[in-house]
Write a protein that binds this DNA or RNA. Structure first.
Lengths: 200, 200
DNA sequence: TGCTTATTTGACCATCTGGTCAAAGACACG
DNA sequence: CGTGTCTTTGACCAGATGGTCAAATAAGCA
């Protein structure tokens, strides 16, 4: 049985994950250095490598933790609920994630931009299966006349892109909006978009 | 007066730009190496540095060229045209750019993800001004009842995110869609989205 | 052809980077 | 307090990386 991590281990492992998230989400895997991560974690480099065997291990651990949370909001979409509200609810959950976890969003974006070398199988496996399952539900909703006809998979892509945009392109959004908080106005806008797209 | 570049200069400078685009768009500035770029250009590293003074110079040149083309499609939106068609036309032009110039899109995405250190001023200056100008036009269209009420700036964000998604998240999109070509179905979908959002 | 300029290259350098290791310091617990 | 374990660190290493330079080679042109 694995010995439970000591207090110090818990603290430092958490610090490293946070630091890694901060650094990797900004520069990507290859653009980040162990020194940067160690700095951000307030540890020396050898000390950092006492807790994780390699740079890759930190990055992989981050990606693994991320993927868990990433699919969750889509899972929550309930095929027994009201179609328009279920889809809007999903979009709103994703937007909230963009606001509360922008670094996670950017880490994911970085990985995808670089060709998703470490998670291509998850995308083509778990994610694809989940999307297809939800697409089937959406198709049923369309057949039942509960929502207007729409390509279900592209609808999901739209939710992803419209919500993640506010995290991934944050600097651009803020450069244009100035002092206005992006997320307040974004929520209203996205609800407009999806309601008009879907309400029969 | 600057001597016109020789045939060899033109060829090699072009090769370097293409190679740099290929490499930088995948790994970002810090994640890319001169050796990679030199390899992709079919030149030795010192030879590459004979044409560009530094890694930074190549990257900056690429960004500069990119920004020119990036704003162009939005400029083309004609305030005297039919509102819905003008906005859809812009979205379609952007989608076409995502299909034909995905590396440019990813280069831009990488730069923004990293906090846009080299182009923040362009975003807050030229881009912001352009967006504000077009937002004014859109507001007028709304006031005239030509399109449904919508937040003009977020509308523009939506066009960006929905279209660039197909270039930036290409691997994810293809992992989910399988053999289907993303862009054929995307075009129909995006027209649905914007028509339902805007048509009064 | 010969001569000038443009191009290419191999060898080289300082710095950075991921990672190792042995020794020193801090903790926990009897 | 003492002792065994956990944690931290300074010194170090091999390879990668951005960049330089003098010398060799190829074009261009009179």
């Amino acid at each position: 049985m694995p010995k439970s991590a000591t207090r110090i281990q818990q603290k430092n492992q958490a610090a490293i994950m946070t630091a890694g998230l901060e650094v990797f989400s900004q520069f990507g895997f290859r653009g980040s250095t162990l020194d940067q991560v160690a700095d951000a974690a307030g540890l020396s480099k050898p000390n950092l490598l006492y807790y994780f065997p390699s740079k890759d291990a930190i990055y992989t651990a981050l990606l693994a933790r991320l993927l868990e949370n990433w699919l969750e909001p889509l899972h929550q979409m309930n095929d027994a609920g009201d179609p328009v509200e279920e889809i809007l609810g999903y979009a709103n959950r994703k937007l909230t994630m963009s606001r509360d976890f922008p670094r996670e969003s950017r880490l994911f974006a970085n990985e995808i931009l670089q060709g998703a070398p470490r998670i291509k199988d998850v995308l083509a496996g778990e994610l694809r299966a989940l999307v297809e399952a939800k697409a089937t539900v959406i198709k049923r909703w369309i057949a039942e006349g509960k929502i207007k006809p729409v390509d279900p998979v592209h609808l999901i892509f739209s939710i992803w892109s419209l919500t993640q945009h506010y995290a991934d392109f944050d600097v651009q959004v803020r450069a244009i909006l100035g002092d206005t908080d992006p997320f307040d106005t974004a929520e209203t806008h996205l609800n407009d978009v999806f309601r008009r797209l879907l309400t029969p």
